[in-house]
Structure formats: C-alpha cells, structure tokens
Amino acid sequence: MQRLWSLFVRFFRIGAFTIGGGIVMLGVIEAEMRALGELSDEEIADMIVLATAVPGPIATNLSFVAGRVLAGWPGALVSVIGTSLAPFLTILFLSSIILRHLGNPWLGSFFLGASAGVVVVVGNSLWKMIRTAVDGFPQAAAFVTTAVLMLGFGVHPFIALGAGALISIAGESLRGSGEGESA
C-alpha cells in the first residue's frame, strides 16, 4: 500500500511539473527510474521502446509500463492516474473559465498570439524530425506519401500513416535483403 502511494506521488509530481511535452517527460521518467535503482538499464530501455512504439501519449504509456514493472497491475494503474491527474485537473479548471469567456476579444487575441508560437514549435519539431528520420529513399518516399495523401487527397490520417509506414517498412526490408545478398 505504501509502495503504491509513493509510486502515485512520484508520477503525480512528474505529471504536474514536467513542462515540455512527451519527449521531455520521457527523459524525466527515465531519470526517475534510474534514480530508483531497482531496474537494470536494459529493463528501462525495453520499457521505453514499448512505450514509444505504441500509439498514444508517451508519458502515460511509459508511466503504465514502469508502474507495471515496479508494482504489478495495481502499480500500473496508480502510475497512469498519477501522471494524468494534474494535467486533467488543470485543464478542467481552465476550461470552465475559458468557456465562460468565449467571445472575449482579449482571450481571442491571447490564443491567436499563442498559435503563432505553436506554429514555430511545430515547425522546429518537424525540421528536426525530417533531419533525423528521412535519411534515404524509402524514408523520403514514405514521408512524401503520408503528407501528400493527407494534404492533397484528404484521406483519413490512419490511411496516410499506414501507407507511409508500409513504404518505409518495405524499403527497410528490401534494403536488408539487398545487403544480405551482396554479403
């Protein structure tokens, strides 16, 4: 019981005070797991692989996996709730305020200004991702396919993502078998 509570508090703190989105939370949770000293580096690496490969918010996924490893299914549940609780309550509180002031020009300009910042943040993230992930022909093809399918043809994001993934995976395995043959 004590164990579960301390787990909950640990993840609540992470959820409440980690600003910077998924990747940052990943680093913070990883650091906390190392600090705990109960998990081997390999176990931590496995957890991260699992949490990032699966769709969904990395922070809650990772909390779930870490909690599971540390304290079974109850631990998993408690960790996820811990991570989600502070953001949930914060947004709930802000939502009720925002909804009451919907037509307000000040609020509108506040968000309009924010959207300028968001464009920059997304742009930077995009650039970083392109530089690291698009490093070959199949990757470029996958990248372009996904973008064009959505922007040009308005397909459902699932289909666009799936098509790009197929191309990328196919390219990877072709490259793999090609190297195998020449070796």
Partner: peptide, 25 residues
C-alpha cells in the same frame, strides 16, 4: 521487432508533422 517497427514508422510520422504544421500555419 517492436523497436524496428517504431523506427520504421518515423518517416511517416514526419509526414504527419508536415500536415500538422500546414494545418496550423
């Protein structure tokens, strides 16, 4: 397998980010 799958997905994710960027910009 999971690791390779996740890495292979990244170019498509980059495509998604382009869409995100365009939607916002």
């Amino acid at each position: 397998r999971i690791d390779r799958f996740q890495k292979a997905l990244r170019p498509a994710v980059a495509g998604m980010l382009v869409v995100a960027f365009w939607t916002l910009a």
